[in-house]
Amino acid sequence: MPRPDQVQDPELRNLFEQAQGSMKSGLANDAVQTLVDALHRLLELKPELASEQLEPRPGWKMHFLSRWPQLGANFVKGSLDKNEPEIEFVKENFALSEAITYYEFTLETAIKRGA
């Protein structure tokens, strides 16, 4: 199961450790900002993620990144369709549960892609 020490890229690993520290201190906003930075770094390392598709049912395609939690740090509408994912913050304050959800998704994605 995903843990920061399984991340190969030092910069990305550092971001996950930083996010983990923020969550432990109850600093959800800081954690979410750091995890958005981690997503950007992941896209630098694995640019193919921007256009990766899932096929939940035969004939139905969806962007893999549409699984990124839409909890306030959301993709700009249409940016996924252009394969140019761009995050916008639609609110200022995040709950710890939201930060944890971003953390688990981003960390698992990074490790599964060998980043």
Partner: peptide, 10 residues
């Protein structure tokens, strides 16, 4: 929908 997780936690 955007805030339901934060609502759940609080």
């Amino acid at each position: 929908r955007a805030d339901k997780k934060a609502m759940w936690e609080e």
